[in-house]
Design a protein around this nucleic acid. Structure first.
Length: 172
RNA sequence: GCGGAUGGCCGGAUGACCGCGUGCGCAACAGGGUCCGCAAGGAAACCGGGGCGUGCGAGGAAAGUCCGGACUCCAUGAAGCAACGGUGCCGGGUAACGCCCGGCCGGGGCAACCCGAGGGAAAGCGCCACAGAAAAGAAACCGCCUGCGGGCGGGGGUUCGGGCCUCGGCCCGGCCUUCGCCUCGCAGGCAAGGGUGAAACGGUGGGGCAAGAGCCCACCGCGGACCUGGCAACAGGGACGGCACGGCAAGCCCCACCGGGAGCAAUGCCGAAUAGGGGCCUCGCGCGGGGCAGGCCGGGCAACCGGCCGCCGCAGGGACGCUUCAGCCCGAGAGGCCCGGGUUGGCAGCUGGAUCCCGUCCGCAAGGGCGGGGGCAGAGGAAUGGUCAUCGGGGGGCCUCGCGCAGGCAGGCCCCUGCACAGAAUCCGGCUUACAGGCCAUCCGCGCAA
């Protein structure tokens, strides 16, 4: 009903995607917390909301309802690597890389009050260059934030117009 | 040196930046609850989270989940029987095993060594494809032999008939007998030979016989009372027997031994809203409850139904299949006290184990005794990592052509490649399966040099 509570973030100019996340430090300006999804219903709800495919993974995202008990300033993220990824070693490796990508990108490009789920792809998630994965997630976040709500168009591919820079949303 | 056998071990290393889980220590800023206070606030340090420092943090298979246990809950206990499942040469090891060690037997290999579900086929049933005559109380397709009968041919005899005649005989036919062949039939004997098969009711040689056959003999094989060695499986010898005993038990089965079921999502505990259950004690068994044999009354054509009495006679019900024994519980109300089910979340279980290493003693060994020492993964959408650099590894090409008869080896340069199988989930003992590359030890065969 209400837009996400974003103005608490520091309006410092950050351009995510241009620079690899090596120098990213979670500067403790805003009380931005990242938690890990643990409940199966959370995963199911995220999968039924917005989704954005990328070469290295599939991103699912959902803006939480304000009635939920989770504090509004937290970003929650979950990881799904099914048996299609391979055996346990391959699944764990893909999940670790996705977790590392999320740790680098989400404090910059993620929005508080949202749940994100990163789904691994067979082969690509484990083999794609790490810098490309970082760029993939940045682009996917900006596109998924710009796409309309899934209630209007259930399968919005995000190609209706030019993707808006998520940094503009932060400034506004 | 080449080829092989067995046993054991490793299964990348170092560094940089950024992270994760957990134990300990420190500082106490901020938060929640508690207590004190009218309040600001303070106190103790309860709870959860964060900060800094520091220690530790996947495997030989963590895998498959195939066996055996520990542990937990469920089932009243004991004995017997039955059913079901498992194991199966012998001895030992072990908490236990289908595991391990040592040995036996059979098979393979020149050898080191390897492989084997390896109890019972005179308890019984069943099966033995194809081929073959026949696949299990033996039988007989071709075949061999004997007798009889028939056919053909040869020899011999003739007191028979006919013909010729040199009157001595000769020829033809018949009959009798004998031999051979057979094309055959009948009756009987045989199982050597042929051929089939994974397997054919012993093998070879000789005697014997009508032909044959353990019918007899020699050797071999087989069975085997008994003797010797060994704890035993078994091995060696063997009177005697005289061929009698085909194979399959991974078809059923028999025998011996073992086995209750479910599993850490076991199980226990804590908190909250809701629902309203259970346990114990006391009173009371008036007469209530339940069941059954019997009697009476009523209804109904009847099967039967309902009620009452009798009566505690105490049967009845519950408890993995059955039986027996021992014991237990239940049923009906009132009062009091106490506890708590399911769902979700959290905590415990949770890592010290039949443990590992070293020494010593016993043992061929598996292993065991004693002494000393080490002990630091415990996650829970699941930590133990992400990115990168250098070295190492692997693959390819070129050069030196240094060494070698050669396959090739050595050195240098360049390029490519993150690089075996694979991720703890209660914990142990095993098995099985997967695995790039590499190391060590012992042994066997062949070759070379000395």
């Amino acid at each position: 009903m209400t837009p996400p509570v974003a103005p608490a973030t520091d309006p410092r100019d950050r351009t995510p995607g241009t620079q690899p996340a090596v120098s990213v430090c979670p500067t403790p300006g805003p009380p931005l917390q990242i938690e890990v999804l643990a409940r199966r219903p959370d995963f199911l709800r995220a999968a039924q909301a917005r989704r954005q495919g990328m070469p290295g993974f599939l991103l699912q995202a959902r803006q939480r309802h304000p009635d939920e008990k989770v504090p509004a300033e937290v970003i929650r993220v979950g990881f799904t690597c099914s048996r299609k990824l391979g055996n346990a070693v391959a699944r764990n490796r893909a999940k670790r890389r996705l977790r590392e990508v999320a740790r680098a990108v989400l404090p910059l490009a993620g929005r508080p009050g949202w749940d994100y789920v990163l789904v691994g792809r067979p082969g690509a998630t484990a083999e794609r260059r790490f810098a490309d994965l970082l760029a993939d997630l940045t682009r996917a976040l900006s596109q998924i934030h710009a796409s309309p709500a899934p209630r209007d168009k259930p399968r919005a591919p995000g190609a209706g117009g030019p993707a808006r820079d998520p940094a503009k949303d932060h400034r506004r």
